[in-house]
Design a protein around this nucleic acid. Structure first.
Lengths: 110, 110
DNA sequence: GTTCAAGATAGATGGTTGTCAATATGGACA
DNA sequence: TGTCCATATTGACAACCATCTATCTTGAAC
């Protein structure tokens, strides 16, 4: 399946307290200056910069420089992948329980 | 916000190749015997057992013993949290770009 | 060009994590 | 009771990661 590796990267990226905080702030703010993350989260500026890089390289956010400041926003493509995965899991969780494991089925049959 | 910590745990849990594979298999299979994970993923049995424990402790899956085998399934609550987060991110990504950062706004004004 | 502030990079470090081999546990069945 | 099989636990180790301090780069304005 194409994109499976990217999904892991996305989940790894947002599966960290500071980075999930950044992403949530972006989701509610739409567009946020990098300088504001330093204020909100209890880590130093290089750490924020590192986390922004991780999120950027995972395709979760993108930044645009405007003068001295850099403004970040969420990447719709990554957001869509998380939403799709959530939908898949929810559908799978609500499905009727019917075991289909090949090995288990064979053993139960034999 | 209640649940933020749990979200990180859930994302950390499914943000690993083997574990995401397990979860995807559960989503499509509904209910899977632990013995079948050993076959699919290219790791040893203790490693699978370890990953199942991580997923269990994050509330992503639950297991039920039936005779010799243990059958795992997805936990609807965790699946719902992923779906909700995906929805939040998608909504935030599609929002009109309007910077709201307090610090940045102040600086641009002054 | 100089200065100042925003952001990125480098290097170091302590903690976490994925993996394995070896062993333990616990149900099923003879 | 004893054996077999599925699963869990233990202990060890290498790789990775989040964080820091210090320093570099870059754009703006004087």
């Amino acid at each position: 399946m194409i994109g499976a590796v990217d999904d892991v990267k996305i989940l790894q990226a947002i599966g960290e307290p500071t980075r999930l905080g950044i992403v949530r702030q972006l989701a509610s703010g739409g567009e946020v200056c990098a300088c504001d993350f330093t204020a909100c989260c209890d880590v130093t500026q290089p750490t924020i910069s590192h986390h922004l890089k991780v999120l950027r390289e995972a395709g979760v956010i993108s930044g645009e420089r405007r003068g001295t400041w850099i403004y970040y926003r969420l990447e719709p493509r990554a957001a869509a992948r998380v939403a799709a995965l959530g939908h898949t899991l929810l559908a799978g969780a609500q499905r009727d329980p019917k075991p289909v494991g090949a090995k288990a089925t064979l053993k139960r049959a034999g």
